[in-house]
Nucleic acid binder design. Sequence first.
DNA 1: TCTATAATGTTATATTATTACATAGTGTTA
DNA 2: TAACACTATGTAATAATATAACATTATAGA
Lengths: 130, 130
Amino acid sequence: MQRQQNLTKNQKIVLDIIEKSTEPLKAYSILSNVKKKGINAPPQVYRALDKLVDMGKIHKIESKNAFVACQSSNCKVSKAAAFSICESCEEVTEIDNSKISKYLSSFADKIGMKYKKYNLEFFGLCKKCK
Amino acid sequence: MQRQQNLTKNQKIVLDIIEKSTEPLKAYSILSNVKKKGINAPPQVYRALDKLVDMGKIHKIESKNAFVACQSSNCKVSKAAAFSICESCEEVTEIDNSKISKYLSSFADKIGMKYKKYNLEFFGLCKKCK
DNA sequence: TCTATAATGTTATATTATTACATAGTGTTA
DNA sequence: TAACACTATGTAATAATATAACATTATAGA
Ligand SMILES: [Zn+2]
Ligand SMILES: [Zn+2]
Ligand SMILES: [Zn+2]
Ligand SMILES: [Zn+2]
């Protein structure tokens, strides 16, 4: 049975390469990087990505179709994440969501939604680039 | 010269079909719906979509690769939008962002980002489905 | 062992988006 | 007018992203 603690072989391989990367990785980039480890085809990568997202181990940056390792242990619980994305250097940083998530979840209540998760992406210029 | 007030022919056609739709439309769905109006190929649709997004007339729902007409005149200025997405009936609603945007833009300042825009997508169950 | 389930492997295909280049309109100016 | 820059459009081909369908193998109880 799939548990959070016990990743499967393919999940470990995929998570490992995402954690080692300094930038968001795309599925086919992951695929080409893990061919030497015996992962040969897209479904193997996408299945691992789906499960890792479900577990809160990684996040999908929707605007980039790319994946990053979670930087906030918080997400394992809430599955809500926020990112700042620099439009110049493309740097993506996960924002510690404990402050923001309280505000947003109460907001979701107000609009009559039974809230499960959210995804927030800020765009602009990072400290270095501005 | 392209102005906000004066949409081009293809932009008008694409915006029109998005405004008439009650749900987010995907690019190829738009394409198949406008073939009778003389738009034949993906680039014609994607070019119109890009410009309309730039103008704040429509938004892309990143998690769905689909487009909706803007419901908040606010967005023409801020290019920041928020949506609630029902995971059961797939309903997508633009949240009037005047309240939320003040909070989020001040938040973006704090984390050292020169903020230009954001995209926020809430997932959960809408009033009807919960 | 038997059986049910989860995980993996593989091929093919569907869906989403862009590149590259050709053509046509539009306004400006020499 | 002719030359031009510039925008918009049209078209074909292809790239990039993601899933469907089905076969095989591993794992963990009963
Ligand atoms: Zn996280
Ligand atoms: Zn930067
Ligand atoms: Zn809007
Ligand atoms: Zn619903």
